[in-house]
Design a binder for these strands. Structure first.
Length: 126
RNA sequence: UGAGCAGUCCAUACGGCAGCGGGAUCGUUCAGGUCACGAGGAAAGUCCGGGCAUCACAGAGCAGGGUAGCUGCUAACGGCAGCCGAGGGCGACCUUAGGGCAAGUGCAACAGAGAUAUACUGCCUCCGCUUGCGGGGGUGAUGGUGGAAAGGCGGGGUAAGAGCCCACCAGAGUGCGGGAGACCGUACUGCUAUGUAAACCCUACCCGAUGCAACGUCUAUUGGUGUCAGGUAUCUUAACGUCUGCUCGGCGGAUAUCUGGCAAUGACGGCUUGAGCCUUCCGGCGACGGAAGGAGUAGAUAAAUUGCCGUACACGACAGAACCCGGCUUAUCGGUCUGGUCACAUU
RNA sequence: GGACAGAUGGCUGAGCUGGUCUAAGGCGCACGACUGGAACUCGUGUGUACGUUAAUAGCGUACCGAGGGUUCGAAUCCCUCUCUGUCCG
């Protein structure tokens, strides 16, 4: 239903309200690595919501754009294997600009997705 | 051949697969297919100048801000071009906030006798006597200090000295000649005037304020808030509000309360063809102007150009549009071409 | 995106109508006094780098975010950058 929106394909909307970001930072679970920090929280909706943060620390506008692209790419590839009905915020870290996209996709496949699933399941039970 | 100077242009290229943004079109009302297009020379810093929009417009003055050789170019500029002066370089050429302290005021620490006017050490002379001291006068050459000591240097002159006089140089004024002008050249006069205006200031010229989160249209909720209109009560012709900060002046009577409308939220518009770019010709030393012809859809809104693979080489820097232009400044791996200069060699 | 502020020792914070006499003052730190021992209080000292030196002493030079300029002289005035922070109907 939201495919016309572009960036994200199937079940995902863009998260763009500052309140939602703050709520996730406070109440969500997080998975940290040297490339990124992923915040997860169930939202009780029939679709997912994704937010990306690329702060000033990462570098100039070119580097920030690259970080966002990499995260979007990785999310798109991992989307089908994710549970539906969660909010995600991915915060980029400065190491992310130094690696290639395949490296980050591999990380998401092997570690990111299972961790997100685990966190989501735990919080759903509550 | 080497060194160096000034400027122009380019910003890895090509192919394959997957993907993104708005648009057109097919299809159908919702998936999707097809097509072409899709970041920069600085998109940056926000340092200037405009366009555009809203507010205010009877204006006038002061304050405040900016610019600073001249002539031009331009929509405009603190930009650019040419020229002048000063400084640097053998040279091509480069640098230059470059009006006025000779209108007034201020400041100039320390040092030094003395800092914008003086007399410590001196030099000369007169008087007195205890004969190397005291007093009067002349002088600003000498000594040291300082960023700066009353134009500089040499000669004449003198008791000693001094633009007191003379030559040359620097500066000022006046006349004449040249130039569009900044200025340049020259003659005479006069006898000289410290630095600082990126100190106040003076002179000339320019400047209304706010910025696309401007602003316009539609729309949900109306409790408070703001604002506009009307009613009621109170106070009065001076206050208050507003017009840029102030003054004059103009406009609105003001405050409280009640009723009604509007605003916010969200969406859409503003949003991209523009003082635009390229080529040729004409005018101009040039910036630039004119004419003819040609090419050409970035317009997002947590924000689009990417990921992977292959080939080639110089192994790829700085860096991402957010209303739009003209500059300036700063960052930048390198490459390309053009025009001068100097040195050496050969002819 | 736009409009504005600021940057001074380890920390805080004056100096910003240029002057050479020290970059005030407070906190902190070190040492000493007070005490049986501490705290409080009082006193003295205390930035960094380089050079000199046997030397941790003393002396000299430089440094007020960075780099230029004006000036005899700059923390102060002017210009260009860097960084930090604030505001937006």
């Amino acid at each position: 239903m939201l495919s016309g929106y572009g960036i994200i394909m199937l079940y995902t909307e863009i998260l763009n309200d500052n309140k939602d970001f703050l709520a996730l930072y406070r109440n969500g679970r997080y998975i940290a690595s040297e490339y990124s920090v992923i915040y997860v929280r169930p939202n009780g909706r029939p679709y997912n919501r994704l937010g990306i943060t690329a702060g000033k620390k990462i570098g100039n506008a070119v580097h920030r754009n690259r970080a966002k692209r990499l995260i979007r790419l990785a999310y798109r590839q991992a989307e089908l294997s994710l549970p539906i009905g969660i909010d995600l915020v991915i915060v980029a870290r400065s190491r992310l600009t130094e690696i290639s996209s395949s490296e980050y996709c591999a990380y998401m496949d092997s570690k990111g997705v299972p961790e997100i699933e685990r966190c989501a399941r735990k919080m759903m039970k509550k």
